[in-house]
């Protein structure tokens, strides 16, 4: 069964015909080729598939695509604008927060939301914000430091 959904994807209005048994992650990766959103576990346990829905981070592997109808979705592909890296992306790279990079898109989107909600997060708040995103490579420390370096006191 298919259904048409309307959404704003990375700032662009779109009508998409999706199968009702596709997750949003499937549609992004398989149909739209937006492979920056990763599939780490496919069951809501790792955060590799994080996208922003109306600004908030969500595991897209746990969301039926049809449920994105009427929403605004931002993926990692939308973060760098006009050929310029976003300050979060720069900070992540400078502070060593990226290793294999598989968790990175999710981490960056969570950070984006965090800093919008709370421009000066404390270490505990940072750890809490990324607590649904698993990173096996970095041991989190350099990620936490990168986010902290962006805090505006």
């Amino acid at each position: 069964m298919k259904k048409t959904i309307r959404l704003v994807l990375n700032g662009e209005e779109k009508n998409l015909l999706v199968n009702v048994n596709q997750t949003l992650l499937d549609v992004l990766r398989d149909d739209l080729g937006l492979t920056g959103t990763k599939k780490g576990c496919n069951q809501g346990e790792c955060g590799a598939c994080t996208v922003l829905i109306n600004g908030k981070p969500v595991s897209s592997c746990s969301l039926l695509a049809v449920k994105a109808d009427g929403k605004s979705i931002d993926t990692i592909e939308s973060v760098a604008k006009e050929g310029h890296l976003h300050p979060i992306q720069i900070a992540f790279n400078e502070k060593g927060a990226i290793q294999c990079g598989f968790c990175t898109p999710g981490m960056i989107l969570v950070t984006k939301n965090l800093l919008e909600q709370n421009p000066n997060p404390q270490i505990d708040e940072i750890k809490e914000a990324i607590s649904g995103n698993i990173c096996r490579c970095t041991g989190y420390l350099q990620i936490i430091n990168a986010i902290k370096s962006l805090a505006k006191s």
Binding site: I76, E77, Q89, P105
Partner: peptide, 12 residues
């Protein structure tokens, strides 16, 4: 900074 940082952080 890593040379592959930009590619990884943009999802490319």
């Amino acid at each position: 900074p890593r040379v592959d940082g930009p590619a990884k952080s943009t999802g490319k």
